[in-house]
Design a protein around this nucleic acid. Structure first.
Length: 603
DNA sequence: AGCACGCCGACT
DNA sequence: GTCGGCGTGCTC
């Protein structure tokens, strides 16, 4: 180290579940800036690190006396500036996860060979006004296309999946940044340096810096794909909201039937609701009561008629079936045993012959007959896609009936049978009819979002059906508020009812949730670890910590146990302290804890 | 997450 | 008598 020029130290974060940074010596002559990626040795292995701070030696507290040196830079300039780093830091804190893992998920993979020096990104964007708009009218996709193609500002479109991203990249002639793009690193740089005005990507593009004035668009904002499991454990909508809060810009959230959270934001005046002109015509939503029918055949008369009519005109029909529901329901009166405290359907534990609440852990013996009508037809059986295909093919032998996850994969089928994903990515109005085989399967899900999901499914079905077509909904609950609202095309009516329910029982958007999920080969160890977590949270004011409850079957065949924590808006900050030791060392005594803020999927 | 160092079962 | 299982702990 030359006298007079103090050695520089850089703090790095790595793609590891570690919520701390590591200090390294900066070799003389190496110009490093926060946001830049470098290669450095950690435990002898060369790894990709992101520089989060650079300063004179001695700044890093607790660092060993002699530091290892950074090996080389991977990029001549940072991909994100201080604003992007700040955003990622907020996201990591908000989701109780590591900054390194968060950044790794939000940056394109570094180039294989060290690229030639490039111009650094422009100056930090000047503050622009922030606006959020919720676009839910018909033709919103076309409107977005016109808005962005018309220019002149920069635009970033975030799609729920790579396929949609690819389609939009073509539509807008935009730089493509998702995993399937030929060179994401080059594409990222092209936008940063102003050579491309528009970009399309999935959640991995959320931090892409844009020159002002910028428009950020989130497609299908209600889609759970915007918060898949794993890092970064944050909903793309929440990140984009924060992003426009910090740096300004225009945020457009697109959805026919938005998330309850986004509707609430609009109702509170924090987002502008844009419903657009009324559609010229809308498919009719028909409720087909299934009392006592669905047991033997998946088609009621109204749905059979819709199928027959559509087949006669040579049209296409989609049938939405659902996997077996984990809950019990009465096939006679439609009653579903629910948790007395949480209001969600109780999950049926067949082996124990018990009903259990997935949220609070309440358990009771499974009744032999329906508590409401005393009927004996309390059953878990549902009509899965395979059974529906067989039944429809028997009833309409001349029709081509296909089971498909994606309508585009079965172009020749007259009748498509699939789960709710079937209706995704369909051109609006392309179907003659849609049949929802058993809406109750969806309503029975032990998830407080069940009604929201049902409403979104119905709305999507209507949008996918031609204006003179029919959406036939088979259900034992023809008066359910989600169905009524879909029939009258009255969004506000649904959200008013749903928000009242959420407020009464203390669910989002009024309260926040965090799920502590524990798994382990030894059930005893898992239970003990979860009890440690609950004990750690015991003294925190403002929290409701629910008892352990069995968690849904995970990918691993290990017993899983979960516990839900409910709290105020600042829940992450309240949990960070007490759960800190657990987050830093999640594996203990043969069990592992996973902490998930704002979970979207409970079933 | 990896990877190393730690103590208890089936083998050349 | 050893080789090796993965349980636990650490990473500038």
């Amino acid at each position: 180290v030359a006298a007079g020029s103090p050695a520089l130290v850089a703090d790095l974060v790595f793609d590891l579940p570690l919520r701390r940074s590591f200090s390294y010596r900066v070799p003389p002559g190496l110009a490093l800036r926060p946001g830049q990626r470098v290669a450095a040795r950690l435990q002898g292995r060369l790894r990709v690190g992101v520089v989060v701070a650079v300063g004179p030696e001695g700044g890093a507290a607790g660092a060993p006396a002699s530091l290892a040196a950074i090996e080389r830079v991977l990029e001549p300039a940072p991909l994100v500036g201080p604003a992007g780093l700040e955003l990622a830091r907020w996201a990591a804190a908000e989701s109780l996860s590591s900054l390194g893992a968060t950044l790794a998920a939000w940056l394109p993979p570094p180039p294989r060979a060290a690229p030639a020096a490039v111009a650094p990104p422009g100056a930090s964007p000047s503050r622009q006004p922030a606006t959020t708009e919720l676009w839910c009218g018909p033709g919103r996709g076309e409107a977005l296309e016109r808005e962005l193609a018309g220019g002149p500002g920069a635009g970033l479109v975030i799609a729920p999946d790579g396929e949609t991203a690819g389609a939009w990249a073509g539509r807008l002639d935009a730089a493509r940044l998702d995993a399937a793009a030929p060179d994401r690193w080059q594409a990222w740089l092209a936008v940063v340096r102003g050579r491309r005005r528009l970009a399309v990507g999935t959640r991995s593009a959320l931090l892409l810096p844009l020159p002002p004035p910028a428009t950020l668009a989130l497609l299908d904002e209600q889609d759970a794909a915007h918060k898949p499991p794993g890092a970064p454990r944050l909903h793309s909508r929440d990140l984009l909201r924060r992003r426009v809060q910090l740096e300004g810009g225009r945020l457009l959230l697109l959805a026919g039937a938005p998330s309850v959270e986004s509707w609430w934001e609009a109702r509170q005046g924090r987002a502008r609701l844009v419903e657009g002109a009324a559609a010229p015509g809308r498919a009719e939503v028909v409720a087909a009561p299934t009392r006592g029918i669905l047991r033997n055949h998946p088609l009621t008369l109204p749905l059979t008629a819709a199928l027959r009519d559509a087949l006669r005109r040579g049209g296409r029909i989609a049938l939405v079936a659902h996997r077996r529901a984990p809950a019990l329901g009465c096939d006679d009166c439609g009653a579903v045993p629910r948790c007395p405290d949480c209001g969600v359907a109780l999950a049926y534990e067949r082996t124990a012959a018990k009903l259990g609440c997935r949220l609070c852990g309440h358990r009771e013996p499974a009744p032999a007959s329906c508590p409401r009508c005393r009927g004996r037809r309390l059953a878990q059986l549902g009509w899965g896609p395979e059974r529906v295909v067989a039944a429809v093919a028997r009833r309409f032998p001349q029709a081509v009936v296909a089971s498909a996850t994606d309508a585009a994969r079965a172009p020749r089928a007259d009748v498509l049978v699939g789960t709710t994903a079937l209706l995704r990515r369909l051109p609006p109005g392309g179907l003659d009819a849609v049949g929802i085989v058993a809406l109750d399967d969806l309503l029975r899900l032990p998830d407080f979002r069940a009604a929201e999901r049902a409403f979104q499914l119905l709305w999507t079905a209507v949008e996918a059906t031609r204006p003179a077509g029919r959406v036939v909904v088979q259900t034992l609950h023809p008066d359910h508020y989600a169905l009524r609202a879909a029939q009258t095309a009255d969004r506000a009516r649904f959200y008013d009812d749903e928000l009242r329910f959420r407020e009464e029982l203390g669910y989002p958007p009024f309260r926040r949730l965090c799920l502590l999920r524990v798994s382990g080969a030894d059930p005893g160890a898992a239970r003990r670890l979860l009890e440690d977590c609950r004990a750690a949270l015991g003294g925190v004011a403002g929290l409701v910590v629910y008892p352990p409850a069995p968690a849904g079957a995970g990918p691993a065949r290990r017993p899983r146990l979960a516990c839900l924590v409910k709290g105020p808006r600042e829940l992450p900050a309240l949990l960070a302290g007490p759960l800190g030791p657990l987050l830093d060392r999640p594996r203990r005594a043969g069990a592992v804890v996973e902490v998930e803020m704002d979970p979207v999927d409970f079933a």
